[in-house]
Simulated scan of single mutants.
Amino acid sequence: MRLKLLAAALTAAAATLTSTTSAQAGHSWGSYHWARTANPFTLKLGDNLASGWKSYLGTASNDWSQSSVLNTTVVTGQSNNNCRATSGRVEVCNRTYGNNGWLGLASISANGTHITSGTVKVNDTYFNTATYNSPSWKTLVMCQEVGHTFGLAHQDEGQTNPNLGTCMDYTNNPDGPPSNLHPNAHDFTQLESIYAHLDSTSTVDHSAAVPTVGNSKASWGKRVARSAHGDTYVRDFGKGSKVITFVIWAG
């Protein structure tokens, strides 16, 4: 079985979505969101990428900044290839992480329901193969993993269903038709719903200690959900602080 597009995040709703119709009704990660006091807010995407990946992050940033509630800006990364989380922003990294079953991985740190940091990792072990070494796969994976760090889940988790025309969809063929390379209108509607309320404080660009996890399931904590396509893990650091990781495995 081919590796399927990976993503991160915990949400009971996302874990139980079983059809395109139900998925499109709402595809948020439960109540996880960045705390902020005004819309639109700007989230920094830290570039820790090799030169061959930088344009894909730029495309994802431009795509998601079309939202009416958030903007993103690509800044110099503060992490390394191990992609240690940085408070108040998202760190984006690539590396040959090994034959561990995942193509891309997104994790969020959260305190309660407020996201405090995010990481995106793309695994060159697989992107260096003929199957995934293409602009289409790189565009899709980067777009989806960055989207997860805003609190978005997948619109559809079926791997053989028709493309929905969004990068927040599983697919065996990113080019479609329709193309799954960019967000669609439903993604932006969902972001408006997630960020409809304002908070009294902000976790965006906020300096604070954040927990982090590694690249293998041994560091991801307790498995809290399992499906035909992947597992969801939560590592609880106490006092409401946790890291949520959702992984799709190769069959």
Rank of each mutant, 00 (worst) to 15 (best):
V122T: 10
Y56F: 15
G101A: 11
V122D: 05
V92T: 14
A106C: 10
N128M: 01
W102Y: 06
S107R: 13
T119Q: 14
N111D: 03
D47W: 05
N128S: 15
Q78N: 14
T72L: 15
G104V: 04
T42N: 13
G46W: 03
D47H: 08
S109A: 15
L70A: 14
D47L: 06
S31C: 04
G88Q: 09
L103N: 08
W102V: 03
R89I: 09
L103V: 13
G118I: 08
N128Y: 00
K44T: 04
S79F: 06
C83P: 02
S31T: 13
N48Y: 01
C93Q: 11
K54H: 04
A60N: 05
V122R: 07
I115M: 05
N94L: 03
V75R: 04
N48A: 06
N71S: 13
V92F: 10
N81E: 08
H33F: 03
L43S: 01
N123W: 05
N81S: 14
A38V: 11
T37H: 06
C93Y: 08
G98M: 07
A60W: 01
W34L: 08
K54G: 02
N99A: 15
Q78V: 04
A50D: 15
K121Y: 02
G77Y: 03
L70K: 02
G118V: 09
R36G: 00
S109N: 13
N100G: 00
R84S: 10
I115R: 02
A110F: 03
R84L: 08
A85D: 09
Q66F: 00
N80G: 15
V122L: 15
K44P: 00
V122S: 04
S109Q: 14
T129I: 06
N81L: 04
N62M: 02
V75L: 05
L57W: 05
S68R: 14
N111T: 07
S61D: 01
S79Y: 08
T76K: 14
Y97M: 09
F41S: 10
N100A: 02
L57S: 03
Q66C: 00
N99H: 06
N62F: 00
G101D: 12
W102S: 04
G46A: 12
G77C: 08
N123A: 05
K44H: 12
F41R: 10
N71V: 00
F127L: 02
